[in-house]
Amino acid sequence: MLHAFRLAAVICAVLPCAALAHPHVFVDVSLTLRYDAQGRLAGIDEVWAYDELYSLLMLTEAGVEGTVDPGQMAALRGLDANWDPLNGGRLTVEPPDGPAVLAQPRHLSTQWQGNRMVTRRRHALSPPVAGDGPVFVRVYDPTYYVDFAMPSQVVIQGRAGCQASLQSGQTRGQDDAYAATLRAALAQELDRAGPDDVQVDIGAVGADSIAVSCGR
């Protein structure tokens, strides 16, 4: 990964770093929170609707031409960015006692709707999280290559009396984090005594989140 930052650091010497911090792919997110019989948050269903331009690019890369039929959807499943834990979408669930552990997501469907590719996946929480909350749910790209638009409303299944609200983040924080990451990479190139890789989690800074709380 570091070689990418070497190039970015050189560019940064000529251009303002913040100008490089912008997404190239746009995804609208839908979420369904699934509670178990004990009232615990046990799973989350996640839907991504890719922007029309990137959807078209994925069709081209998969060799799909003309009308998209159900048999061609299999060619698109492997292009979903979700499966890379470092570069792509990351779902996090944060109760008060620390981040929850999520199992590898299970693919539910890949569909072509209108002019957009829509993918669905299910995340299981292991163990489930106490549902009284508050719990914060985020979907973001650590590298900020993808911009995820979090939903203003979510679907809640299995428990009554829950409230979910959108907590808007600050995009400016992502610009600052991008610049700081580039500076760290450049410093590492000048002094190789540091670690072999620079951790990237730009998208987490200032990302939107969903705040969920349920009555006892």
Rank of each mutant, 00 (worst) to 15 (best):
Q72E: 13
L59S: 01
L57M: 14
W48K: 11
G66M: 06
Y54S: 10
L59Y: 01
Y54Q: 08
L56P: 02
L57D: 13
L59W: 04
E46H: 14
G66P: 06
Y54K: 03
S55M: 10
A75K: 06
V64E: 05
E46R: 05
M58D: 12
A42N: 00
T60N: 11
G66E: 07
G63C: 02
M73G: 04
M58Y: 08
E65Q: 10
E52I: 07
S55Q: 11
Q72W: 00
G63S: 04
V68K: 04
A62P: 00
E61M: 09
L41C: 09
Y54L: 04
D51I: 07
L53F: 12
E52P: 11
V64P: 00
D45W: 03
W48L: 08
A62M: 04
V64I: 15
W48R: 14
Y54V: 05
A62K: 00
G43E: 08
E61A: 12
V68E: 07
A75L: 14
M73F: 12
V68Y: 02
A49S: 15
Y54W: 15
D51C: 08
A74P: 00
E46P: 02
V68G: 01
T67Q: 14
A74N: 06
A42E: 05
V47H: 02
I44H: 02
D69A: 06
T67D: 12
L59F: 05
D69N: 08
D69E: 14
D45T: 13
L56C: 05
G71A: 14
G43L: 09
G66K: 03
V47M: 12
